[in-house]
Nucleic acid binder design. Structure first.
Lengths: 208, 208
DNA sequence: AAAGATTGTAATCAATTACTATCTTTTATC
DNA sequence: GATAAAAGATAGTAATTGATTACAATCTTT
């Protein structure tokens, strides 16, 4: 037993790649993802810069792995909570909460998404980000459609607009937390925000 | 008379600075603002890279000017349309439309905002972005409060949440247009989006 | 324990970064 | 039209970028 925590060297390749992705996620929480250098990543994980390229052929390949990690994590969490309820509205709320929780734990994730989508050249990492968001929108759209059938959600609702607003809410909270420089503000405002959203999409006949 | 349109040289300093800001806004529409170099800016305006530093002492000073331009433009347009109506709800809708119109004309603007807010170090440009968004939120909050007094807007509304959602809508549309790679999608979705927003914040007693 | 494969180090590469010093050209003012 | 100031061109700087190299340390397999 000689696992010194500070210097974990000679990790198997797969494990090293995983640690690298974690380091990038960490760094993306602290600064603009576009300006993260390979030297910074290496320093964060107590490794030399050149060693990084033994595990990733190129920097974009590294970003690709990172985006895949984010995709798997976020969609995984979302699908998990959706499956726990039959109510579409409740599912949307849990989906939103799960997303905010994920973003609060990994503030770098939405920033990376945004940064990747901005890239002019069609990189592999960018493509992953695009398909991820498409899948995300599909989840929201499906739940909304389900709710309309059940009569919970307004039948005249513009599903596309409601999807954009759902994603916009997350983005708005992220932006607000960046202005305030405080992540707690995000979790605190999540519940009233969704309440406002629900008020906009739900059917009215039953009330009052 | 030999004013070839491609080479506008020897501009007076003030004019040159204005042209520079325009060039940066243009470039920010095409790629990640954080990775815009002084060489690129100079090339875009048919100037040598060194000449840029005759008009801006440092690169951050340049960004500062750009952020000031965005602030003046956006807040200026917004205040202008707000003044044209007495109805808070109508004012909000016009404000939203003006914002989307501005963003559609200058897609680089919101990207720069996002990029600046992400910077870990407290630069002058970042400070401008923060105060700008604070002023923006104030405008929304004031209109909402006014609407509550007039009985148009739900008295139990969470004003902070509604402000976050307002900004989030813009951000959501920006993101959607980045995924689609098409700016037209933004303008097309603006109206139904605001309708959904209005549905969430307005008083219910008068209807049905 | 020998052999081979894997992982990491240190030095280095060309390209690019923001920024500067020096020289030339253009513009404005008399 | 002479002269000074303003604006731009040219050609640099040191530092940083992603990526590659030769070599050493470590692990795995036999």
């Amino acid at each position: 037993m000689k696992t010194t925590k500070t210097t974990i060297k000679n990790l198997p390749a797969e494990q090293r790649r995983a640690v690298t992705v974690e380091a990038v996620i960490e760094l993306a929480a602290e600064k603009n993802p576009a300006s993260i250098t390979t030297a910074e990543i290496a320093e964060r994980m107590q490794l030399t810069q050149g060693a990084l390229f033994r595990h990733f052929p190129t920097k974009d390949a590294l970003w690709q792995s990172v985006m895949e990690w984010v995709t798997a994590q976020l969609l995984g969490r979302i699908d998990k909570v959706i499956a726990t309820t039959e109510s579409p509205l409740e599912a949307l709320e849990m989906m939103f909460a799960a997303h905010i929780d994920f973003v609060a734990k990994h503030p770098g994730a939405p920033r990376m998404m945004f940064a990747e989508l901005q890239r002019p050249d069609p990189t592999a990492a960018k493509a992953i980000a695009q398909t991820m968001l498409r899948h995300y929108s599909d989840r929201v759209g499906t739940l909304l459609a389900k709710g309309m059938v059940e009569g919970i959600i307004d039948p005249d609702l513009d599903v596309a607009a409601a999807s954009v607003m759902f994603i916009g809410m997350v983005q708005g909270l992220v932006m607000q937390s960046m202005i305030a420089g405080d992540l707690a503000v995000m979790i605190g405002n999540a519940k009233p925000l969704f309440a406002l959203y629900a008020r906009g999409i739900t059917q009215r006949n039953h009330e009052r």
